[in-house]
Design a protein around this nucleic acid. Sequence first.
DNA 1: TAAATTATTGCATTCGAATGCAAAAATGAT
DNA 2: ATCATTTTTGCATTCGAATGCAATAATTTA
Lengths: 344, 344
Amino acid sequence: MEQNVPKSGSKSRATSYDVARLAGVSQSAVSRCFKPGSSVSKKMRNKVMEAAKQLKYQPNAIARSLISRRSNLVAVLVSARLNFYYPEVLFTLTDRFNEQNMRVLLFTVEQESDVDDVLDQIWQYAADGVISASHLSLAQHKLLEERHIPVIMFNRYFDEHASNSVWCDTRDGATILIDQLLMFGHKNIALLHGPEDGMVGRERMVITKEILKNRGIDPVVESRGDYTYESASKAVQEIIEKAPHTTAIIAANDMMAMGAIDELRNVMGRKVPGDMSVAGFDGLGAGRFSSYELTTVRQPIGRMSDAAVNMLLKRVEDSELSMEKRVLAGTFLQGTSTGPVNLS
Amino acid sequence: MEQNVPKSGSKSRATSYDVARLAGVSQSAVSRCFKPGSSVSKKMRNKVMEAAKQLKYQPNAIARSLISRRSNLVAVLVSARLNFYYPEVLFTLTDRFNEQNMRVLLFTVEQESDVDDVLDQIWQYAADGVISASHLSLAQHKLLEERHIPVIMFNRYFDEHASNSVWCDTRDGATILIDQLLMFGHKNIALLHGPEDGMVGRERMVITKEILKNRGIDPVVESRGDYTYESASKAVQEIIEKAPHTTAIIAANDMMAMGAIDELRNVMGRKVPGDMSVAGFDGLGAGRFSSYELTTVRQPIGRMSDAAVNMLLKRVEDSELSMEKRVLAGTFLQGTSTGPVNLS
DNA sequence: TAAATTATTGCATTCGAATGCAAAAATGAT
DNA sequence: ATCATTTTTGCATTCGAATGCAATAATTTA
């Protein structure tokens, strides 16, 4: 027989008052017992904790948020299921935040226009901060910061405006990648761009072109996809059409690189890396599948997540803290999707 | 020059009182204007909305939750980055919940022991409900339900205890899959199981064996992985070792099927489907990559998510509602990873 | 042992919106 | 125009925990 259950559905949540009554102390005492660092005697703590356990009491985070003006909620904005990259980031971030005693409010954003709704929600739930790994206009960013909600941009930043951001510098990795391609004898290199509005991809391709230019090389052709696996097909066809002698493709992300490899091998019947070397950027887990073994520049997702979480926490503590951009170096990851030019 | 900003950092959030004052009405009126279906005159609504816009007022969801006893938060428990399946589910669920004006509190759970902490958090944040696509013991389930937090189990259920759950019945799909394999002439079929504690995989393999048995066939060998791509390697080696004449492998999920294909093709040098047919379960996006074109039984993730969201909402409205198990049929998805037995 | 100091505890208020109830206003019926 | 009805509005209270301040208890010091 259950006890303490007067009627079905009536046993409502125990409050700090219930605990206080049972322990014979004041409500404030209960509150203090659950706040680390408060002044409470051992005797009091024992009494209260005992009563709390008996009533299965846990402080109500909602009520706490209201008075303390800290929700311990972080909104995480993630875009696009089209990319395996985001889930990896998302799960890493979530773990890190949970370790820091913060909860993740997840928002998926497909188009820039979705963001405004999400912003309202963030405001309504009084999120302590935002991690944006998705579209976010300068105006939107400003709106949040005006409202004292710190924003950390994950893998993006504004040129014209200071912001907290975590960024991956792929220059070193890309340099190694390219030098290796050159060493392999590649001269006809094509670029597979990401979508026009994709900052990460654009930057990667800009750097890639710079490095190539420094080596006296211009891409033989530049094509464009939208980061998805599927979009690589047409892009690759275009490359082959416009520059049949291309021997290497550098894609703006791994997903397209994988799509390119598959298009080349399985549709066009070419050998990778024999007939064509393909490299990407990201360091996606799937890139390690033995069907791809992608040569790529890996983003240190774990460290980037740590950086993002730490920056956010710091700014939550001190909202006047000045903006900071943390740039972590991407690392070259050797795969077998690139190799020597086939001299046959 | 910014106006209305007395001092840096001092412009705090507008409350319903601020709006009320500006509009020259009572706070309750403001509250009513933001609650759909309340009795408010047109004139009042206009005045209030005008003032609200001017102050950029949005109701504070935290305060609302406190009094209304509805947080509009749903905790989603997801396990394992090891599987691409979960992100797909997660994003679908999130979209559906947002459409229903509920927010998703994301929790990642790797081990069963993590769950207890998460349960505390769910309780503290007064989540209206839980979707569990991860480990959840009967005791934990009961704890939540005792506390009147409805739980929807995604892709799992309890044999001995009623629960709200969404399940995918793969029997039809699996039947087609198997009959096709038999038609292709396969007689030596191996099973690649998921981990022992994986309910979904177990059920799939049980059904598969049943169907095979009905056709007078026993698996030539049964091996086991842990759902991951990597785990398939050893499992496949074991299969080949113990039953060299195996011509088809049915894996408990797509990820392992993909791992198996790669092991066979890229490590062992066999042809798929020429030397070995491989099939899986899930209908993973990556299974459609042209390197795999997996034959599989697809889970209708969209409809399953809808079902989960609807069930949850119904139970939030009426907590006395009886438990329900919604079973959606998985569908056979023809790929090229299976084919006729090679008679050479 | 008394006084001074420090550590605990309780009181009362606060956070911001929702809501039952009663007062006021608007509408309809006669 | 008068009274009955219905619709709007405001008042006052509530949700549950945190916290400044004052009161009390425990400890230290002289």
